[in-house]
Design a protein around this nucleic acid. Structure first.
Lengths: 236, 236
DNA sequence: TTCGTCTATATTGTCGACAATCGGAGTGAA
DNA sequence: TTCACTCCGATTGTCGACAATATAGACGAA
């Protein structure tokens, strides 16, 4: 329930407004879920047909996605889904470490007791999901995004929220869908989330920042190893 | 000279590619320089006429600018130039502090000796400009952007460069054009820049980050006061 | 075979016209 | 006067057709 609510925040409103907005939403979803593969070329006419609209609105949607770096466009040569290579992901996680650390530090002083309590309850539901194992690691991953986004909101810094919410997370989701199948690290991650919430409850911004930075750093190391293995496999 | 070169990086290529790209560039320039006032409504037909193109490409350009948060759009009600109120600017400077601090820390280990030397020479030319006073504070302000952007490049983190280059700086430039008339603080800023370069030369990332954060924090305090005075004046 | 060229085809870029929607002027009644 | 309603103009949203450009394949010469 809360997951759905926050998803709406993460991926914008579904079906309303102009056709271009709808197209942008559906395309973003398709890209993030991997339905559209990385590097895949996006044919305007074909997509317009599939969405039941003209090429005009669709082109506007592509321009919008270009702005959020979900696609790359080359004049007269079409637009393609962005490819997340190792370097790009490394850069993203580096920035995330700084940004989410900052969000945590601010959240420690800005969030209300109520919000922190909700955060704690969110973790309870995550723990629940993990216990009845197997059952879609996917949702756990989504739940993780919820957790991080709530903290970004707690910072009360609109610019920060936007950078972490609308832009970075879209790319992160792409990455997660790629790696979430061999889900590991959910339990230590939950543990770290709990530590962070504890720091927030104590209003200890410095500690919260430190823990969050460590958490994200660890996540990157884990994903990095996963990519190594994938590359080994595909090489062999 | 180098200013021009880097400006090309900051505000993208001028006249090439599709009409939509050209329009996006010209609009961004007009917004940043204040030729288009904050909050001003952007009439599609009128702008298309002025740029000598159809409304199609122009709409795509607006969608692009929407993506970089230079304009805000409301369905069926048009798009307007974004307004930078005090809260927004405060948020921006907060994020900048974290991001540019990070850039400095990375740059201290990633930049080549050659790049650092060039940075130092850049400051020499700034000092020159300041000495022959009066002469357009504008260029000094642009030079300042150069300095910061070069350090972002030095971080070797593409995501960071993009966030600091393509997005934030556009907004910052808007702000500068508003406040640069009553230029103060150029000399202490130069001093701080010199300290930062010194830290880079010593490959001391921690120190470089600290100095940069302090520098930006100071800049915000200065701008904040300036805004206060402006508001007082307009209130009286 | 292999390279270069050249043509056909598909795809992108652009325009003009039409439909849908919004804001405001004007009118009338309480 | 003031509120509500209606209608009209202006502006945005959408579509289809055309022009410009790049991609792929065939063809021929070295």
């Amino acid at each position: 329930m809360s997951t759905i609510g926050v998803n709406a925040m993460l991926i914008q409103v579904p079906e309303q407004g102009t056709l271009a907005d709808v197209a942008a939403h559906r395309l973003a979803h398709s890209i993030v879920t991997g339905e559209l593969a990385q590097g895949q070329k996006l044919n305007e006419a074909e997509l317009a047909e599939r969405f039941g609209m003209g090429r005009g609105p669709l082109r506007e949607a592509l321009r919008h996605l270009e702005g959020m770096r979900l696609v790359t466009r080359i004049p007269n040569a079409g637009t393609r889904v962005v490819v997340l290579d190792r370097k790009t992901l490394s850069d993203i996680y580096g920035v995330r470490e700084a940004l989410e650390g900052m969000a945590c530090r601010l959240a420690a002083t800005q969030m209300t007791d109520d919000e922190i309590a909700k955060l704690s309850k969110l973790l309870d539901s995550h723990e629940e999901q993990i216990k009845k194992v197997g059952g879609k690691v996917y949702s756990q991953s989504e739940g993780d995004l919820d957790f991080h986004f709530q903290i970004a909101r707690g910072s009360r810094n609109e610019m920060l929220m936007h950078m972490l919410g609308s832009e970075q997370y879209q790319l992160l989701r792409m990455c997660r869908y790629r790696t979430s199948r061999k889900a590991t690290r959910t339990k230590p991650a939950l543990q770290q989330h709990r530590q962070i919430v504890a720091a927030l409850e104590q209003r200890d911004g410095e500690l919260a920042e430190l823990l969050m930075r460590r958490h994200i750093h660890g996540a990157w190391k884990s994903i990095s190893e996963m990519i190594d293995k994938e590359e080994e496999e595909s090489a062999a």
